[in-house]
Structure formats: structure tokens, C-alpha cells
């Protein structure tokens, strides 16, 4: 399995024809390829099975993925966003579905419910969890991704519109204090922020989703 960054904004995956080198990528993210490569719709649920498909329909945390396999090189990119590569060795990655670019074969995805608060945008309410052993590529809009460590005694508060994902044993809670509400632009309907505690890493992007 060979993944590399062509530029900081382009992910290149080399497929060697084996089933293990196949990937699932965000629909529409393939920008170029060479070789004998087949693209197959991963089915509703993004290959996560019927149960995931049902939850996605219910929650709006949709994950349109395409299965990419064969022999050759495939280039992936989304709106000139910066690509973040992560290796998973059994940890749990939680990510916004719109930030997922590519997953290696063997990783499982599911929709997890992370709280019942202010359903204005759904950001951070339902997230996609990725588990197993393999590689994941996330997309950060507006500039390089920012990784922030969370440890006991150093909690972190994040704007849900800038939140990309979290890796490790982090607990997420919602902050809805009045002081936060004042921080938000009038156009944004968000009235809560995400507070992370525990031990792990939280990824954010410089640009806020609109």
C-alpha cells in the first residue's frame, strides 16, 4: 500500500492490483489516474453496511464513497484543501464526514451519535467513526490542518465549524454558555462549541465552514 502527497493538496495512491491496496475515496475527489483502475460506487452507507446506511439517512451524516481498485496511480483532491495523512493502529478516529478524503481497505466506518444539543447545523452532533488498522486521509480547508493535543488538565474548546476530527481517547462535550454565543457571527446559527477532554489529538482547519 503506497500513499504519498503529490503536493500538500493532492493525495496520490499507488495501487498494485492486490485487494489490500484498494481504497475507498470521497465521491468526486478523483482528479486524475493512470493504469488499469476501476471505480465502483461503495453503495449506500459508504461501505459501512446496511446499519450504517440507515443511520446515515437518519442523521444526515452522509458519506458518499467510491471503491477504487486495480493497478495504477490515482490522484485525489478536493477544492484545493490540504491533505492530512493519518495511520490508524487500532485507535478510534472521529471525523466530520465532509472532511474524509480517503480510507484504506480494512478500515470500518460508522456513524456515532455524540450529543443532543442545538441541532442547527449538525456539525459535531453526529460524526463518522473510523476504526481498524490502516491509513486515512482527511481534508483541511483554508490552509494546513492544525493538530492540538488534549491531555488531562489541558482541555480544548473548538469552533464546530472549524472542527475536522479527533484521534484517541477524547471525550467530547458541548459548551452552550452565553459567552460563546457572542463569539459567533450573526450569519452562523451555531450556539455551541465543542469541548474536548481526555488524552488524544484534535484536528481543526483554518477556515470556518459556511
Amino acid at each position: 500500500m503506497s500513499w504519498r502527497l503529490g503536493t500538500p493538496r493532492v493525495l496520490v495512491v499507488d495501487l498494485d492490483g492486490s485487494a489490500a491496496s484498494a481504497v475507498r475515496a470521497r465521491t468526486g475527489s478523483m482528479v486524475a489516474y493512470e493504469g488499469e483502475v476501476t471505480f465502483k460506487h461503495a453503495g449506500s452507507g459508504g461501505g459501512g453496511g446496511l446499519r450504517a446506511a440507515f443511520k446515515q439517512r437518519l442523521t444526515g451524516e452522509s458519506l458518499p464513497l467510491v471503491e477504487v481498485s486495480g493497478r495504477g496511480s490515482v490522484h485525489f483532491a478536493v477544492d484545493a484543501g490540504n491533505v492530512l495523512l493519518l495511520d490508524l493502529a487500532g485507535q478510534v478516529l472521529k471525523a466530520e464526514s465532509e472532511s474524509l478524503l480517503c480510507l484504506s481497505e480494512g478500515l470500518r466506518t460508522d456513524v456515532v451519535f455524540s450529543g443532543l444539543q442545538g441541532a442547527s447545523s449538525g456539525q459535531g452532533l453526529f460524526t463518522t467513526s473510523v476504526t481498524g488498522h490502516g491509513r486515512v486521509a482527511l481534508i483541511s480547508m483554508g490552509g494546513p490542518p492544525i493538530a492540538l493535543r488534549v491531555a488531562p488538565g489541558t482541555p480544548l474548546v473548538v469552533d464546530p465549524d472549524a472542527y475536522v476530527g479527533a484521534l484517541g481517547d477524547v471525550r467530547q462535550s458541548f459548551v452552550t454558555d452565553v459567552s460563546w454565543r457572542n463569539l459567533l457571527g450573526e450569519s452562523s446559527g451555531e450556539a455551541f462549541s465543542l469541548r474536548f477532554e481526555g488524552q488524544g489529538t484534535v484536528f481543526i482547519q483554518p477556515e470556518e465552514r459556511r
Binding site: P155, V157, D159, L183, G185, E186, I204, E208
Partner: peptide
């Protein structure tokens, strides 16, 4: 002084 909507994260 901070303009609203520009803060993306903070560590207290």
C-alpha cells in the same frame, strides 16, 4: 478585542 466568528479554538 476579537471579531466574532474569527476564533477557531482555545485552551483555557
Amino acid at each position: 478585542f476579537v471579531q466574532t466568528g474569527r476564533m477557531i479554538a482555545y485552551y483555557p
